[in-house]
Design a protein around this nucleic acid. Sequence first.
DNA 1: CGAAGGCTTGATAGACCTCAAACACAGTGG
DNA 2: CCACTGTGTTTGAGGTCTATCAAGCCTTCG
Lengths: 252, 252
Amino acid sequence: MILPLRQQAEHVVVLRKLESIADLTQEDKQAILDLPVNVRIFEADTDIVRDGDSPTECCMILEGFTCRYKLLPDGKRQIMGFYIPGDIPDLQSLFLRTLDNNLGTFVRTRVAMIPHPFLRNLFRSHPRLAEIFWRDSLIEGAIFREWMVGLGRRSGYQRMAHLLCELQMRLRAVGLAEKNGYDLPLTQNEIGDALGLSTVHVNRILQELRSDGLIVLRGGALNILDWEGLKGAAEFDLTYLHFDSDHLAKQA
Amino acid sequence: MILPLRQQAEHVVVLRKLESIADLTQEDKQAILDLPVNVRIFEADTDIVRDGDSPTECCMILEGFTCRYKLLPDGKRQIMGFYIPGDIPDLQSLFLRTLDNNLGTFVRTRVAMIPHPFLRNLFRSHPRLAEIFWRDSLIEGAIFREWMVGLGRRSGYQRMAHLLCELQMRLRAVGLAEKNGYDLPLTQNEIGDALGLSTVHVNRILQELRSDGLIVLRGGALNILDWEGLKGAAEFDLTYLHFDSDHLAKQA
DNA sequence: CGAAGGCTTGATAGACCTCAAACACAGTGG
DNA sequence: CCACTGTGTTTGAGGTCTATCAAGCCTTCG
């Protein structure tokens, strides 16, 4: 059943996400909240869309934790990004007919599906919103690039620290992180698939981060003991997330 | 001095590039050729734009060979993509104020600079072209993702093979590759910066690819001896380049 | 012809992987 | 209530890929 986004409790998170990267007028917000969406629930460890699919709707994460990944012929997996509430990970399906990767869940996830025609109409009637979504997809590209730098040139230790910093900033932007940590429902194996490391090595790196007094990760909860230290270890510079200046001012 | 793009000999390559990823109407082509551009020449090994810049124009490569890269505090470099004639590598500057990476040349490069206002006007008057450029930036994202998979989960040997395959397809799409090779004006050190490998290791991998009878790379010219073998070694699947179906039909 | 940059080779070292097994813990069923 | 199971975590040992260091070689070019 299709209902306007405003009827979903989590619509707040969607607005927060967009406001973290751009200024929204009252009318912009209205238009977004009026979007007709189809809410679906995906269980943990299932695929939302798959490599080779040609979706006719875009999905917006309302609640849960998801990733984009590819599988190699030999069974290896590379996770290319994490998507949290407020994100629209397959906006690309609007302009790229066949998907070249999978979107999967880690936990039970609520998703708002928006049929392509509604989005196309929105972009036609609100060119400024089209620009904002374009901007969002460019920011996603910037995040890919930052990950590439990590995979190519940083140590496992640095990559891990960097990932934890990125998620802290992004989750906090939508109100889903505490000042010093957040829920991270990933196994060490899954973290390895994101960082290009083996499970064993992820485990050893986490111990090292712990013994350096930077973090504790246990039972799906990340506790950041030393934010400045973690940022330093990661050489983390949040420019690449391209937050809106107003958003940054508010956070500070 | 600002002149319409049509006055540049290389305007053909720009149209070829766009037609490789989308259908252009006669009017679309006109509008693009009418774009006022400012041609600039960059010597080899110079930066076109830099990390931290806030450009007021986008650049379109007319001739030459360039890359996007980041530098790490310790001096390490990661190249995140190569840009060839027809590409518009900093379209993102339209929507992301401050650049988070550098664009640099390898050889003397001719670039058409397009002031932002002209592009904004173009997109307003030709929404279909806006969609095509949006599509192009999404394809760039898809290329980033494919590189991430390589950096995270493929061996140096496979990554090298994959890079050579990608460039063959992209250069061929704009008429700059032969059936069995192309000019590749990169040092082994620069290739290493793209693949996340040391110069020494790049050298050894190239020898291996040669002794496997797949390629010869010498004096800036790549000769592909066994295309199927190279594709196989790379597990290369061109879906991620999202070429237009018409373009693929023509190539076949 | 000398200098500079890139290529090649050898030797050594380190980051990270694979394999294998033990451990911890939550959920299940008798 | 307690084995039993399954999944995830942890530890150890050995091996591989790739980095680093250092030197020699080759080509280009002023």
